[in-house]
Structures are given as structure tokens and as C-alpha cells.
């Protein structure tokens, strides 16, 4: 009933919903979490956060301008409980769907930014996520801007059936066009990035960064264990594992993330000439 408590706190005009540490289960007020760079004030582990909060955290103050904020999912398959899940997710997160997109500046460097919201049906990708990210890449292509994407997802949104699978192709095609025009696409893999998002735009960046300890994989750990028939190492599908196997460029801690991103954006500024 998390959504009810959140709804009540929203209605009573209190602060935004608190964050809950996955490791020690401590509830951390949003303000405290923000001040602490989204590290748990109790155990020091990384808090799971995304979406609007992520953009507010990384972008220069008052530079964020949202692209296509008013897209909502439809239960077009009349899938059991989907309408209910959407309603709950909307009330829990205050978002209309699982990704927030727009333009922003990072230490003065302009970019198109998107950040997925893990609390919105596991940031699964349905029509809205696919459409919004596609529009973000199309906007970036039109304005010759780099794209900075924070990925987090449980994969394709099965409640939208085959239409959700096709979003992988749709976004990939937009990434391709943006890339062919010589624009930078920088991804930051955050916990957890899995399934169809890993198998599409999460892994299509020119440069792929990851947060420490983030779960990143295609198949779920349980499925892999069943298929493989043995226990997997503890760091299996963690960003350190991916770095070791050659699939991410660098693991960057939250305290270094903003300056690293800003530096990379600056290095790809196409207007600078000798």
C-alpha cells in the first residue's frame, strides 16, 4: 500500500515520498537523500533513484526543460491488472510513465537527457517509454545535441504485448539516425538495467558508464540459474562483472559522475576548433 501512503502525504502537502534503502531498509526523507548524493545515510550504500530526481540531481539548476511530458499509457490489450498498476504507479511516483526526457545543461554543457524511473512498474518499456525516448533522440538529431541517458528497467512491459517489444526496434532506429549524424550518445547504466532495455538502447551508447554495483544483464538471475543449473558468482551481472568482461567503458561513483559526464560532453563539443 505504498502508493496510498504516498498519495496521502501528497494530498496533505507534505514533502515528496521518502526513499527506502534496498540494503538496510532504512527510510530516508527525500531532502536528506538529495543532500547526501543519494547514498544511504544509514549504511552508505547507493539508493535506487531515477527519473525526475536523477535529472534534478545531475543537471545545472533551472536548466531542465521537459520534452513531451503528457504522454500516458493505455491498457489497449485489457491486460489483467494493468490499468490498476498504472494508476498505482502514477500515484506512487507522481509521473505519467517510466521515463522523464528533456533538455538540460551539465556544468554548462547542453544535452538532451532522459532518466528512467525504477519505481514506475520497474521502469518497464511500453509505448510511452519507447515514444518519449524516440522523440528525445529525434529532437537531439534536429538540434545536433548529444544524448545523455540514465537507464534502469525491468525490460519490455509485457502488459503491452508485442507492441512493447517493437519499442526496442523503434528506439534503436532513432539512436542509429542520431549516431549517423555524428552525435554523441552517452549512457549511464544504473541499478537495475535488464531485459529488452539492455538488449537495445542501454548498450548502444558511444560511451557506456555504469554506477558501482548496478545490476545489468539481459536475462534475470533466477532464469540464468535455472538454465545453467548452478549457483552464480555473487557479482554476476553487476557493473564490475561487466567491466571485467569488456562491456562498459568505466564505472563511475556518484560523487564523480557529474564532472565525468560534463568532461565527456565538453570533449565532444562540435563547435570547438583549433
Amino acid at each position: 500500500m505504498k502508493f496510498l501512503t504516498n498519495l496521502l502525504s501528497k494530498l496533505s502537502g507534505k514533502d515528496e515520498a521518502p526513499l527506502i534503502c534496498k540494503s538496510c531498509k532504512t527510510e530516508i526523507p527525500a531532502k536528506v537523500a538529495r543532500k547526501n548524493d543519494y547514498l544511504c545515510s544509514s549504511c552508505g550504500k547507493y539508493l535506487r533513484f531515477g527519473g525526475r530526481r536523477r535529472i534534478q540531481w545531475i543537471a545545472d539548476e533551472k536548466t531542465f526543460q521537459e520534452i513531451s511530458p503528457n504522454l500516458s499509457s493505455q491498457d489497449f490489450l485489457q491486460f489483467p491488472n494493468y490499468a490498476q498498476k498504472l494508476w498505482e504507479a502514477e500515484n506512487t511516483t507522481g509521473e505519467k510513465d517510466a521515463v522523464v526526457c528533456g533538455t538540460a545543461k551539465i556544468k554548462g554543457n547542453p544535452c538532451v537527457i532522459f532518466a528512467m524511473e525504477p519505481d514506475f512498474i520497474m521502469a518497464s518499456m511500453g509505448s510511452v517509454v519507447g515514444e518519449k525516448i524516440t522523440r528525445a533522440f529525434e529532437y537531439a538529431l534536429e538540434h545536433q545535441l548529444p544524448v545523455l541517458g540514465f537507464t534502469a528497467s525491468g525490460g519490455a512491459r509485457m502488459q503491452e504485448g508485442i507492441v512493447s517489444l517493437m519499442q526496442m526496434a523503434k528506439v534503436s532506429a532513432a539512436v542509429r539516425r542520431h549516431s549517423d549524424a555524428g552525435n554523441l550518445y552517452l549512457t549511464v547504466l544504473t541499478d537495475p538495467t535488464t531485459g529488452g532495455v539492455t538488449a537495445s538502447f542501454a548498450m548502444q551508447g558511444d560511451i557506456i558508464l555504469a554506477e558501482p554495483g548496478a545490476l545489468v544483464g539481459f536475462a534475470g538471475r533466477r532464469v540464468v540459474e535455472q538454465t545453467t543449473g548452478s549457483n552464480l558468482p555473487k557479482d554476476f551481472q553487476r557493473s564490475e562483472f561487466l567491466l571485467q568482461h569488456g562491456f562498459v567503458d568505466e564505472i563511475v561513483s556518484r560523487s564523480k559522475l557529474k564532472e565525468t559526464i560534463a568532461l565527456l560532453l565538453r570533449m565532444h563539443n562540435r563547435e570547438v576548433r583549433i
Binding site: A169, S172, A199, Q204, A219
Partner: peptide, 26 residues
């Protein structure tokens, strides 16, 4: 579906699919 074994994950199953989508688009 794509194979879900540990070896497939170690060799980048997600990346392999992602690259095909990107390349086929163009």
C-alpha cells in the same frame, strides 16, 4: 528466445541483440 545461460550473459547477450537492432535499422 535468446539463450539465457551464464555463458551467454558473460559474452554480452544484451549487447549482441542491441547491435543487431542498430545495424539492421540502417
Amino acid at each position: 528466445g535468446a539463450f539465457c545461460g551464464a555463458d551467454a550473459e558473460e559474452r554480452g547477450q544484451g549487447l549482441a541483440i542491441a547491435e543487431n537492432l542498430l545495424e539492421m535499422a540502417g
